[in-house]
Amino acid sequence: MKNFLTFFVLFWSFIASDQLGTECPADKKAVVCYWGSWSIYRPGLGNYKIEHIDLEYCTHFVYTFAGINLNGVIDSLDYHNDINLGGYKKVIALKEQYPCAKILLAIGGWNEGSEKYSFMAETEERRKAFVESVVRFVIHFNFDGFDINWEYPTERGGVDSDKENYILLLQLLHSELSKRKRILTAPVPANLYIISKAYEIEEMCNYLDLVNIMGYDMQQRDKTSVHAPLKRENSDPSKKETLETVVQHLLKSGCSKSKLVLGIPAFGRSYTLYSSYSSGLGALVKGLGKPGNFSQSEGFLGYNEICEQVRSENGWKITYLRNSAAKYASKGDQWISYDDAETVQQKVRFVKEKDLAGIMFWSIDTDDFHGDCFGESYPLLSAINRELY
């Protein structure tokens, strides 16, 4: 009997300690990792499979993108990948290994446009039908939350009433998702004109659990410029916004710092220079830079493409802009603005100084997930985690 009691106590002590070991820290800074699910179609070493996902680096993981169908409700944009190949199911299964991670489904994105979201949000009836479909979708596929990536209210075919209708939509989404213990997040662009025109900041932040600042794509079109500047360089006379000014504006407009998440890019923006003899900031350009082998898109290079080029090809000149927390590289007529481990850590220190909610990362599939450049897989995400925790 004594031996049985000893075993009983030890057994339940083990169970209790195991359960305590998986308790999720409530005050941990967020690392929100977006995944572009279309990256499974990239060629060669750029091909990113679900098997590559490592949630050790992420507190939140966002599967992108669902869309709106002709009936005005949520639907998969890639039924083959999401359903037939089991994309949704496989990503949710990662929670068995990482029970503290929150896995969200995002709707929208740049390619989805704005107009059909504007139309959906225009009437109470259409908003309710959409929200009901979202809740059903999230519950059915067992996501922990929903990310509404409408880019952007009042813009790109939207109407002025989107600003008010967006708040009504968020209010309804928050009401229906929160009662089922699901979270609601959304991004905002790092563009003060769009922010002022499209959003009632204080009300928006009241209904969202996290507000992800898209801290990138701030470059100019006609001359070289940094696409994710933290602060303005001393030599820069322009009044163009920086991530610092965007954060300041959102805080002054009534958004709590406990909800603001600063976005960091795992990609660069590139140009083709007008003259290879003029390659500093503000140099004239002919157009977008050459496409990479993986992303195959002019003017865009994943960090995995950038670090491989700069590491393996001689002749690249790299400049570190310390105020901007950014780097640019030039060779011949090609010019790239990007972040690396050093600049990423600088931005994380800014988040800690301002006591913001955390970091957002776009996107996990363009980090050097193979570790080809420096022998460490996910060097940017690793740098974020090292500096944050």
Rank of each mutant, 00 (worst) to 15 (best):
K163W: 08
L388M: 10
E112V: 09
F137L: 03
G254Q: 06
R127D: 01
Y199R: 09
L388D: 02
L10W: 05
E176A: 06
I364M: 09
D217Q: 13
G67C: 11
V188A: 00
E203D: 15
A383F: 05
R136V: 04
I167E: 12
A186I: 10
V246Q: 00
Y320D: 13
F141T: 08
S330H: 14
H52Q: 15
E155Y: 08
E96A: 15
P237W: 04
T59D: 03
I213N: 06
T242C: 05
F65H: 05
Y216F: 14
C58E: 04
V73D: 02
A283T: 13
W35L: 03
S337I: 08
V310N: 02
S312T: 15
G72A: 07
G86W: 10
E203T: 07
L288F: 11
K231Y: 01
F11D: 00
Y320F: 14
I213Q: 06
F119D: 13
G332N: 07
V310I: 12
D75Q: 14
F4Y: 13
I103Q: 01
C373F: 06
T366Q: 15
S297Y: 05
E155A: 14
S275C: 01
L230S: 06
N234C: 05
S337N: 09
G215M: 13
Y98E: 03
G358K: 00
A341C: 07
K29W: 02
S295A: 12
V188Q: 05
Y34W: 05
I201N: 08
L380Y: 09
K179M: 12
L170K: 10
G215C: 14
D368E: 08
C58H: 07
G113I: 00
G109H: 01
D368A: 06
Q19R: 08
M360Y: 06
G44M: 10
L301G: 03
G289I: 02
A101I: 04
H174E: 03
D355G: 06
K2H: 13
D18K: 12
F61S: 04
A329Y: 02
V62K: 00
L321W: 07
L192V: 10
E176K: 15
Y193I: 08
Y79D: 14
I40K: 11
I213L: 04
G157D: 07
A30V: 07
L168I: 01
I264L: 15
S279Y: 12
I103R: 03
M360E: 01
M120A: 07
R180V: 14
M204T: 10
V188E: 07
D18I: 12
D78L: 02
R180A: 11
Y199S: 05
V261R: 01
E132Q: 14
Y338H: 00
G36K: 07
L273K: 05
S382M: 00
L10F: 09
A66Y: 00
V188M: 10
F143A: 01
G113V: 13
S118L: 05
F14E: 03
